[in-house]
């Protein structure tokens, strides 16, 4: 397990990733590949990354490999399916007159160690069926679950809520 610290100087790879992300956002916003636009974009991206140096440690959770694009696509596909499913489920609950919910707070444990990995996991959980991440403390996530089955312990909750996401996420983040 690699230790993660926010205060340490970011590595070259991390800085380059941050630069790439900033540049990509610029490209999407301007929507042009004109030389002058690109030059200004590069300038802005460099300044942004320098200003946000301390924060760019977020990006060292990424595992660089040739499988990265495939893993990201697999995750996105699974995530979008879960998002649609979550909404049909939520629509059913909202529209049914009896309001079929049994909400409670549960805890789950994650094996992801990097801040980025945990951020993505927490966000995924928030957007999927009946669960909302309330707090992330180290490896423990507190989750508001809208329909908790009776007698749920931390292992059962982990299996039900985050095991699938974790499998997909571990393809490209720590």
């Amino acid at each position: 397990m690699t230790p993660h610290s926010h205060s340490a100087a970011p590595t070259t790879a991390t800085t380059l990733t941050a630069l790439l992300v900033a540049l990509l956002l610029w490209l999407l916003l301007t929507g042009s590949l004109d030389g002058q636009e690109l030059f200004i974009g590069l300038l802005v991206a460099v300044v942004t990354v320098l200003l946000a140096r301390r924060r760019s440690a977020l990006f060292d959770g990424i595992i660089w490999s040739s499988q990265l694009p495939g893993a990201v696509l697999l995750y996105l596909g699974y995530f979008l399916r879960a998002l649609v499913h979550a909404n049909l489920d939520m629509a059913r609950r909202i529209l049914s007159p009896a309001l079929p919910i049994r909400p409670a707070l549960v805890q789950v444990r994650t094996e992801l160690t990097s801040p980025l990995g945990r951020l993505l996991l927490a966000n995924s959980i928030t957007l999927t069926p009946g669960t909302l991440t309330v707090e992330v403390e180290d490896a423990l996530l507190t989750i508001h679950w809208i329909d908790v089955p009776p007698d749920t312990d931390i292992d059962a909750a982990t299996r039900a809520i985050c095991a699938d996401f974790e499998r997909y996420l571990r393809g490209f983040v720590r």
């Binding site: 909404n87 909400p103 957007l127 909302l132 508001h144 809208i146």
Partner: peptide
């Protein structure tokens, strides 16, 4: 809490 759930997911 339930309002947050309904609000976030469906609106996203």
């Amino acid at each position: 809490y339930n309002r947050i759930q309904a609000g976030t997911k469906a609106v996203t």
